[in-house]
């Protein structure tokens, strides 16, 4: 049985018919072809799937699409505006905060949410916030540096 969900994704109104068991990440990747949001685990640990739901970061693998009816979703594809990278994206590039790129979308979306809560996080606060985002490539060193740099750039 399919049900209809209507939501805003990266500023665009979207309506889709989905099974209730469809995850938000499946709606994004499979229905809307927004494949920047990744699935790295099945136990809500890795954070490759992090998007913003009504401005707050959430794991799109741990949300049903139907739960998000009426919400506004921002994915990694919606972060740059008019072709200009978000300062967090710029900072990750500047500080080599990514290698294989698979955890990167979730990592960036999570880090953006951190700065919404805490404009000037300490190294410890950054590391603690990123508890829900696992990276196997970078050892996190340059991710921490990137988030610190973005905070500076954004005036924190």
């Amino acid at each position: 049985m399919q049900v209809s969900v209507s939501l805003t994704v990266n500023g665009k109104a979207v309506t889709a018919a989905v099974e209730p068991r469809t995850l938000l990440v499946q709606l994004l990747r499979e229905h809307l072809e927004l494949t920047g949001t990744h699935v790295g685990c099945d136990t809500s640990q890795c954070g490759a799937c992090v998007v913003h739901v009504d401005g707050a970061s959430a794991k799109s693998c741990t949300l049903l699409a139907v739960q998000c009816d009426g919400t506004s979703i921002t994915t990694i594809e919606g972060l740059a505006k008019d072709g200009v990278l978000h300062p967090m994206q710029e900072a990750f590039r500047e500080h080599h905060g990514l290698q294989c790129g698979f955890c990167t979308p979730g990592m960036v979306m999570s880090a953006v949410d951190l700065l919404q809560h805490n404009a000037k996080p300490s190294e410890t606060e950054i590391r603690e916030w990123l508890e829900g985002n696992i990276c196997r490539c970078t050892g996190y060193h340059n991710i921490v540096k990137a988030v610190q740099h973005a905070a500076q750039q954004m005036g924190g």
Binding site: S44, G47, V50, V53, A56, S57, A58, K59, T62, L63, S110, D113, L114, W129, E131, G132, N133
Partner: peptide, 9 residues
């Protein structure tokens, strides 16, 4: 509790 994303939901 959990991580920030869990806490948001």
């Amino acid at each position: 509790i959990g991580d920030p994303q869990v806490r948001n939901r």
